[in-house]
Structure formats: structure tokens, C-alpha cells
Design a protein around this nucleic acid. Structure first.
Lengths: 154, 154
DNA sequence: GCGCTTTAGTTGAGTCTTCAACTAAAGCGG
DNA sequence: CCGCTTTAGTTGAAGACTCAACTAAAGCGC
């Protein structure tokens, strides 16, 4: 067995990695807290409602919704239970696949989403876009796409 | 009362924001899962151990440790309880401030950290640095620093 | 030295996530 | 049409995090 010596992070890489950790963790925590405070929902639930609101008939199969919202199936299942209890979504049986469930955004859910959206978008703007130059925004998109491609690709 | 119309994200901003969400969430989840699988600890605990290992005498006041590890005090308190039960840290009374507690990395904690580090660093390299050009790494550092400055500054 | 405010840290309840185990139906090979 | 494997979705238990409430000690003004 051949064990290769670990290639540690050099000081520059170290700094980059720690800055990234601080920034992304801090940004998500801030937005999550704002959303929880102003709209009574965590960011993960907000994203579920957004994806449903964009879908035809405000409805999606559970697994499509999980993929769209970047959630595991188990996570979505638990979240759906809560969202249903809040009256924001409803579950329907899938007519073409008896295993399937369809999540539907209710009118109340849409109302809650519309109430939450302006504050949340303002937060994303204030904490992210307003802090970066247009060039940096472009760089961030390319960087993020490269990382996302790798994660889903391999 | 004057309510300003929300300035929504334009399609480009939307795409950037979603790519960023996918990438940062995916990256953190991947690293967290790898660390949990290979070393039996979540990333947050790993970071606590790292910070302690870098401190003089492998010891830090709880609040300094919380700041260093980017954790809330409550979170650190709960985590410390677990880490202490695992035998990886120990708590001592602070001699100069009777309110204070000092977290100390034990030999077992250092051993656990040393066992976890190579795999984790390899993951950071594989999932982050290997996917970006040197210019992009530099861009990411500047972007992250700008975001972090804003979050802690304001 | 005495109140008042601030800081240090912990705690418990409630919430969210993960993981593995599970049910049930669909798809497929022969 | 019959097994076998895969896919859809849910569930419960355990772990981790948040928030608010709390204890205790320090710092400060006078």
C-alpha cells in the first residue's frame, strides 16, 4: 500500500478557505435569521415554497421538488409535514404513479411567500450583491458553477 | 409611511444567487458527510479542535474559541459538552476570571484531529481548489473577505 | 462599598437535519 | 406473469442548532 504524504494547504489557500467559510456560513446564518424573524420560516422552507410557486400549477412531485430545492428526500418529507401543518402546501396522490406524491402550494402558502419575499430579496441584495463589484458578481457565478458542476458531476 | 417597491433580482443575479446556494451548500454538505464518515465528527467540531490545536498550550477561553470557530456561545457550549464526553477536550476554571472557562485540547483530541486532518484537507482540495484556476482562487478570497467584512462590520 | 449594567457561560425546550430502516409500487428479464 | 432490482416516499431515533431565560461574576459610577 502506497500512502502519499498529505499536501497541506499553503498559507494563501488557508486564508482563502477560512474567508470562504466565514463568509458563506455568516451569510446563510444572517439570511436564515432574518427570514425566521420576519416571516417565521427558515430559509430551507422558503426555497421549497419558491420552487413550488414557479412550477406549473404550483405543483411538483416530491422528488423533483427535493432536487429543485437542493434537499434530501428525507429532509423534504419532514419539511412537507410541517409546511402542510402550516397550511402552506398540500399533498396529493399522483394519478400516474401510485407510489408518488405531489406537493401543491396553497393560496395561503403563496400569500406567505409573497409576504416573505421582499424582505428576503432585500437581504440578499444588502448582504451579497451590494458588497461586490459587477465583475466580482460575474466571477462568483463562474466559481459557483464550477464547484456545483463538480459536485453533481462526479 | 413610504414603501419603496422591491428591487427584485434580475435573471443574471438570480442565476448567480442560485449557483452560489447550490455550490456552497453542496460543498459544506459533502465535506461534513466525509468528515462524519471518516472521522466521526461534524465539520463544526473539527473546526473547534483545529482552533484549539493552534492556540498557545492548546487552550482558549470559551468565548475566544467561539469567535475563532465562528460559533455562537450556546452552540459552543453544547458542542463542548459532547467533545468533553468524547475525551477530546477538557474544561478548566479560569484563574483570573471566576466566570470563565478554558477549553483545553487533550492528547486524545489531538490524536483524533491528526487522524481526521489528511482526509479532510484532501476533500477541501478535491472539491474546492482543484476545481478553480489560480485566478479564481484569488477572486474567491477577495469576494469572501468583502462579504465577511460587511457581515462583521455593520 | 453599593447598586446597575455588562459580560461569561450554561441550560432546556423546540426545531431541523441526518441516517438507516422500512413499505409499497414500478420496471425489467426471461 | 413471476421474481428481482430499483425507485418513491415516509418514519423514528439520534444528533446538532437556535432562541430565550437564567446564574454568577466583573466592571463601573459615585
Amino acid at each position: 500500500m502506497l500512502t502519499v504524504m498529505t499536501r497541506w494547504l499553503d498559507p494563501d489557500e488557508q486564508q482563502t478557505w477560512r474567508a470562504f467559510l466565514t463568509a458563506s456560513r455568516g451569510l446563510m446564518e444572517t439570511l436564515d435569521r432574518e427570514l425566521q424573524r420576519d416571516a417565521g420560516m427558515p430559509h430551507a422552507y422558503y426555497e421549497i415554497l419558491v420552487r413550488l410557486s414557479e412550477a406549473p400549477n404550483r405543483a411538483l412531485r416530491m422528488s423533483e421538488l427535493a432536487d429543485a430545492a437542493g434537499s434530501s428526500r428525507s429532509r423534504l418529507s419532514h419539511a412537507a409535514t410541517r409546511l402542510e401543518a402550516a397550511g402552506w402546501i398540500r399533498r396529493e396522490d399522483c394519478p400516474t404513479d401510485r407510489r408518488g406524491q405531489i406537493a401543491v402550494l396553497t393560496d395561503e402558502g403563496l400569500t406567505a411567500l409573497r409576504a416573505a419575499a421582499p424582505g428576503h430579496v432585500a437581504g440578499v441584495r444588502r448582504h451579497l450583491f451590494d458588497q461586490l463589484s459587477p465583475a466580482q458578481v460575474d466571477q462568483l457565478r463562474r466559481i459557483s458553477e464550477a464547484l456545483a458542476d463538480h459536485l453533481t458531476g462526479s
